[in-house]
C-alpha cells in the first residue's frame, strides 16, 4: 500500500488508487494544496475538481479531490463542520451533485474545517447505479487521509502538470 504526502496532506492509497498532492502555480495570488485520487490513470492535465478526468471514468471507477481554501474561509458558516465525514453513505450521492453532469455518474461534496484548515471534499462515482459497491471503496480512501495543522513552505516553480 503506497503512501504519499506533501503540503500537510497524507494518504495511504488503497489498492488500485493513484493520486497526487500539489499546489497549482499562480501569478495572481496564493493558491492552496489540492489532493486528487482516482482508480484510473489521472491525466497530466486535469482540473482541480476533475474536469478532463471524470469523462474518462468507467462505471467501476471513483474520483475524489480534497481542495483547500484560503484562511479567509475559516469561521464561515460553509466550513462550520469540524472534520471530514467519517464515512460516506450511498444516499449521500446524487446525479445532481456533479460539477459536470455526465449521464450515469453521481457525486457528493462536503465542506469542513480540519486541523485548522478549510477544505472541500468532492467525490464522483462512475455509476450511480453501482453506488453501493463504489462507496465502500471510496470510504477506504476517506479513512486513509491525514491532514496536519499547517502546510510546509511551498516551492516557487513547478511544472504545469503538477
Amino acid at each position: 500500500m503506497a503512501t504519499i504526502g506533501a503540503h500537510g496532506i497524507t494518504a495511504r492509497l488503497p489498492q488500485g488508487f493513484e493520486g497526487r498532492i500539489y499546489v497549482r502555480p499562480s501569478a495572481v495570488g496564493p493558491t492552496y494544496p489540492v489532493a486528487q485520487f482516482a482508480t484510473f490513470p489521472i491525466p497530466d492535465e486535469v482540473g482541480d475538481f476533475g474536469s478532463g478526468a471524470v469523462n474518462l471514468m468507467g462505471p467501476g471507477d471513483v474520483f475524489a479531490t480534497l481542495f483547500e481554501y484560503g484562511p479567509e474561509s475559516l469561521g464561515t458558516a460553509l466550513f462550520a463542520r469540524q472534520g471530514r465525514p467519517a464515512a460516506l453513505a450511498a444516499a449521500d450521492f446524487s446525479p445532481t451533485m456533479l460539477r459536470r453532469g455526465l449521464p450515469g455518474q453521481s457525486g457528493t461534496q462536503w465542506f469542513f474545517t480540519e486541523a485548522g484548515r478549510p477544505f472541500s471534499f468532492y467525490a464522483v462515482l462512475g455509476s450511480h447505479t453501482m453506488r453501493h459497491v463504489l462507496v465502500p471503496r471510496l470510504n477506504q480512501l476517506v479513512t486513509a487521509l491525514g491532514v496536519t495543522a499547517t502546510a510546509p513552505g511551498l516551492p516557487a516553480a513547478r511544472p504545469l502538470w503538477n
Partner: peptide, 23 residues
C-alpha cells in the same frame, strides 16, 4: 508491479498505479 510513489521535482507528491488500466 507495485505502485510508484514519491515526490515530483517540484516537491509535490505523486503516486502512479500501474494496474488500474488495461494499457
Amino acid at each position: 508491479a507495485p505502485t510508484i510513489a514519491g515526490r515530483t521535482p517540484a516537491g509535490d507528491a505523486r503516486a502512479i498505479s500501474v494496474t488500474n488500466s488495461d494499457g
